[in-house]
């Protein structure tokens, strides 16, 4: 969580300094939920994160350098400048790179799980994260239903962070809780306070375990508040101050720190040490990525097909 927050803050400052092309999207306020997803997955599982999942990505095994290289456009990163920011992954390692169209990753995770069933690979699960906004898409409906029909070990994590860009939940859905939808699909539902790390860890542990044990898709709905804009270009002035002042508006990282202190599992000096270590690691990764070459259009092969012999040539622009 701390490492993800530190990395996110570094990206935000690089964005403000004009060092990052395109958008920057933070997970502030969602780290507890996100890290709980990543920590409960094992090597061999599948993870398709969304834009606010830096914590989950790191917990699943993404390196700081992969993140820094993609945001900073290094030619050496996993996307090599062809795609950027949160659109990164390593599909061969079960870490799927999101597309921007919301809800689209759910069915793709389903497909990886179907493939594993064909291949006789058992006891792996696939998890993906969406916000409450994505639950309004047809893709969401099609994919959760598909997972239920096929009884796939899918863990679908919904962060109800109260706003989809600027649209409040009241303009997104009319049911009391999104978790109520689960029974309509014939899947298990879990609700959790997304500001409490311990609660997130235990609920995700249960959901992942149930999926792994063959109980079919698990829907996890977390209540929390997005503590930043949609992206760093957005000042989020539309967020209701009453929500910020409510329990939903608590910062999960501060809540977790307070818990550590009050339970005397760590003291302030130790936590400060972790913070310094996180800053050091992040600075090192960013410095490395900044030194690396950026993509060269003259070395780019401009080839969208794996079947090179079928590529058409067109007059040069």
């Amino acid at each position: 969580m701390l490492l993800a927050r530190t990395l996110d803050e570094k990206f935000a400052s690089l964005y403000r300094a004009g060092k990052i092309h395109g958008g920057v999207f933070l997970g502030r306020g969602q780290e507890a939920l996100s890290v709980a997803v990543g920590l409960n997955l094992r090597k061999g599982d599948v993870f398709a994160p969304l834009i606010r999942d830096q914590a989950g990505r790191l917990a699943f095994g993404e390196t700081l350098l992969d993140a820094a290289r993609t945001y900073l456009g290094s030619a050496l990163g996993p996307m090599r400048g062809r795609d950027g920011n949160v659109h990164r992954g390593r599909p061969r390692e079960g870490y799927l790179p999101m597309i921007s169209h919301l809800g689209a990753m759910i069915a793709v995770v389903n497909g990886t799980l179907l493939a594993r069933r064909f291949k006789g690979v058992l006891r792996t699960v696939g998890a993906t994260c969406i916000g409450e906004g994505a639950t309004s898409t047809g893709s969401f409906h099609e994919a959760i239903n598909q997972a239920a029909v096929e009884k796939l070990p899918l863990v679908l994590v919904i962060a109800n962070n109260q706003y989809a860009y600027s649209t409040p939940s009241s303009r997104q859905f009319a049911c009391t809780s999104l978790a109520d939808r689960a029974s309509g699909y014939g899947v298990d539902a879990h609700s959790v306070d997304g500001t409490e790390l311990a609660a997130c860890l235990s609920v995700l542990a249960e959901a992942v375990e149930r999926a792994r044990e063959g109980h079919g898709p698990q829907m996890v709905v977390a209540r929390l508040l997005r503590l930043c804009g949609h992206g760093e270009h957005d000042d989020a002035s539309y967020v209701d101050p009453r929500l910020k002042a409510s329990p939903l508006g608590r910062d999960c990282l501060k809540v977790a720190e307070q818990n550590l202190l009050s339970r005397q599992w760590a003291d302030a000096v130790t936590i400060e040490g972790w913070r310094c270590e996180a800053v050091h690691k992040v600075e090192e990764a960013v410095a490395t990525a900044l030194r690396e070459p950026t993509p060269d259009p003259y070395k780019e092969n401009w080839c969208a097909l794996a079947s090179k012999h079928l590529v058409e040539t067109h007059p040069e622009v």
């Binding site: 061969r92 759910i106 497909g111 179907l114 099609e142 029909v149």
Partner: peptide, 26 residues
């Protein structure tokens, strides 16, 4: 048997699942 599968009426999810399966080598 088991390799020709009926799908729900969900073209988006049908293609999505095919993509995921292809990533896994199918």
């Amino acid at each position: 048997p088991g390799r020709v599968i009926d799908a729900p009426i969900s073209e988006d999810a049908i293609v999505g699942a095919a993509i995921g399966a292809a990533v896994e080598g199918m």
